[in-house]
Design a protein around this nucleic acid. Sequence first.
RNA 1: GGCGUCGUGGCCGAGUGGCUAGGCUGGGCUCUGCAAAAGCUCCUACAGCGGUUCGAAUCCGCUCGUCGCCU
Length: 304
Amino acid sequence: MTKHLIVILGPTAIGKTKLSITLAQHFNTVILSCDSRQFFKEMTIGTAVPSKEELKQAEHYFIQNKTIFEPYNVGQFERDALVQLDSIFKTKDIAIMVGGSGLYVDAVLNGLDYFPDLDPAIRTQLNDTLKISGLETLQMQLKELDPISYQNIEIENPHRVIRALEICLGTGKSYSSFKQKPKEVRPFTPLLIGLTAPREVLYNRINQRVDLMIQDGLVSEARELHKYKDLNALQTVGYRELFGHIDGDYNLETAIEEIKKNTRRFAKRQGTWFRKNTSINWFDFDNTEGIIPFVEQKINSNDL
RNA sequence: GGCGUCGUGGCCGAGUGGCUAGGCUGGGCUCUGCAAAAGCUCCUACAGCGGUUCGAAUCCGCUCGUCGCCU
């Protein structure tokens, strides 16, 4: 029997959580979250993790299973997710993954190349160099150490340049030399379901949801986390803007408007990411009845 | 009705005879361990009409509109 991973994709606030629970119940299976901010147990309101009630309706993995105090990244998630899926597929033929984080979804579905773990001090130092000497210095260094990456990566993007450099410096080999692994073969067949909505409708949902988060106490959640505001996990829409307000940079109303704006932009970027993935089967968020029959039909035809 | 004021792209806003201000919003995009991150890119306007001038958003006139004051 083929193992199937139903992957639910779409921008934030479009209704992925609800759909995933419906599917999990129908197929009597479990849900893996693939959301780079819902891993953290210290954040609840601002990341819109499923509610207690929702968590009771289906078994969830990778929801608030990590702490903001320990670094976590795609590579680790890929490994964790594959281990979890292996164990799920021992007893189930179908699993569900819900994802808003494009890179993380791709990692599970297609795999990342292998990169060794590095001493985090290397990145710290590169970040210092960036701050003191500027991006150009790093670009020149990369040109020297790894001309191929210098040609191919987005050279104006400090994150990309630093990543390439940290691999070069930490391994003694070029970043490009690691990116040669053939595509991973996964022990499951993915079926991608995307949810869409007209831009205006989505933006209204986002604005409303932000207002709800504020009502639910996002401000006090942000206050408690304020002292950790430099942690990577807290570079998150909904928190950053409130940290600025708590620091006295602007009033609450402004912070809320900023959260809405940044969430809209985030949703737009998610759209860009998913749009180029041609294997997604798109459904209107408002008309999801057809999804279960569609999935059943696909799975059955695969199993024949 | 009279006098004055102002009229710049979706919004804000500089410019005051010759060289696409800038910011914000918005759109498009990139993506192999910071990804709700980070970065790239697009949107050439000067209320209208006429005049002066080699050349006008910038000067002059009229029209329309704005706001203010007066009657």
